[in-house]
């Protein structure tokens, strides 16, 4: 073994260690967050009664004795997320199809950076936009006081667009051209080939984009709390023009002031949110697995 190959081996060894450290940094971060959240949140949940905490409809943290029921927030998060899907997913998927299959090059070079820019706008800016543009718009055209589940859904729908468009577009572009050409050869028009053959073929990728979008919608905090009204009331679906509070908003609004049991209840809210996100990510990886299989 020459000196040179030995040095190469050393270098390879060093690189290996570097990569292991980098890779484990992410794992350690996730592990630490898990341990911290569950250590702090689970005992509090246990003390309050897990069932009562999850199904209680009263959130009165400053009362004596306090009441900690987060069902209104769980339901609020579900409504707002469902609303965001309703607004964001159809627009996002059609935009992705347009960009991958119909977009003339000169428009594409403007559209693509614009969508990337949309992804880069800080959520507090979205929130401010929502507060001064969307809230008055909804109040004047739909009724209610404007701070509502509906408003938050529109805003979140806008915010998940870049995620859905970018990933769906990549999924559509990844479909081998032979599939499209085959459809054309059989006499299908461009539109028919795109919507009936290429889009179904890209289904799992498009679904993955939707799930990532849902993840973003569930976790969004800053913008939602500025437009959603944040009332901790259990709403029925037909009350979509009334406000609601999401799990994220509950944590961020009150954490600054909370101490003792109240603080523990907010961290427990974080645990519930974390479980939500874990479920969504599990769905995502199941889809990925299906795709590769």
């Amino acid at each position: 073994m020459g000196k040179r190959s030995l040095r190469l081996l050393n270098r390879e060894y060093a690189a290996k260690i570097l990569f292991i450290i980098s890779a484990s940094a992410a794992i350690i971060a996730v592990g630490l967050i898990c341990v911290f959240l569950f250590l702090q949140g689970l005992p509090a949940m246990w003390d309050m009664g897990i069932i009562r905490f999850l199904t209680g409809t009263d959130w009165r943290p400053t009362w004596d004795p306090p009441r900690f029921g987060i069902l209104p927030m769980i339901v609020g998060s579900l409504y707002v997320t469902a609303g965001a899907i309703l607004f964001g997913v159809p627009i996002g998927i059609f935009a992705a199809v347009f960009m991958a299959k119909f977009c003339p090059r000169p428009i594409y070079v403007i559209l693509k950076p614009a969508i990337n820019l949309l992804a880069g706008i800080p959520s507090v800016v979205y929130g401010y936009f929502g507060m001064v543009v969307l809230v008055p718009f909804v109040r004047e055209n739909f009724g209610g006081n404007g701070n509502s589940i509906f408003t938050a859904s529109i805003l979140l729908g806008m915010m998940i667009l870049p995620t859905i468009i970018t990933i769906s577009e990549n999924a559509i572009r990844a479909i081998p051209p032979e599939i499209y050409e085959g459809a054309i050869a059989l006499g299908a028009s461009h539109e028919r080939a795109t919507f009936k053959v290429v889009l179904p073929a890209a289904k799992s990728g498009v679904m993955a984009s939707v799930i990532l979008g849902i993840g973003r919608a569930v976790g969004e905090t800053m913008a939602v709390r500025m437009v959603a009204g944040n009332q901790a009331i259990l709403r029925m679906p037909h009350e979509f023009l009334s406000g609601a509070r999401t799990l994220t908003a509950n944590v961020v609004i009150e954490l600054g002031y909370a101490y003792g049991e109240h603080r523990a209840a907010l961290i427990a809210t974080g645990v519930v949110l974390f479980v939500f996100v874990m479920i969504i990510n599990a769905l995502f990886s199941i889809l990925k697995k299906k795709e590769s299989a």
């Binding site: 009362w63 004596d64 809230v135 109040r139 006081n145 404007g146 709390r225 500025m226 961020v252």
Partner: peptide, 29 residues
């Protein structure tokens, strides 16, 4: 009974600036 009983229907504005903007934007606030 000594506990905060402010109506739950109230819009919760986190922070003074959000409060001011909310009232300034809504004729019925």
């Amino acid at each position: 009974e000594g506990n905060d009983n402010l109506t739950l229907e109230a819009v919760v504005a986190p922070g003074t600036s959000v409060m001011m903007t909310n009232v300034a934007e809504n004729p019925l606030a």
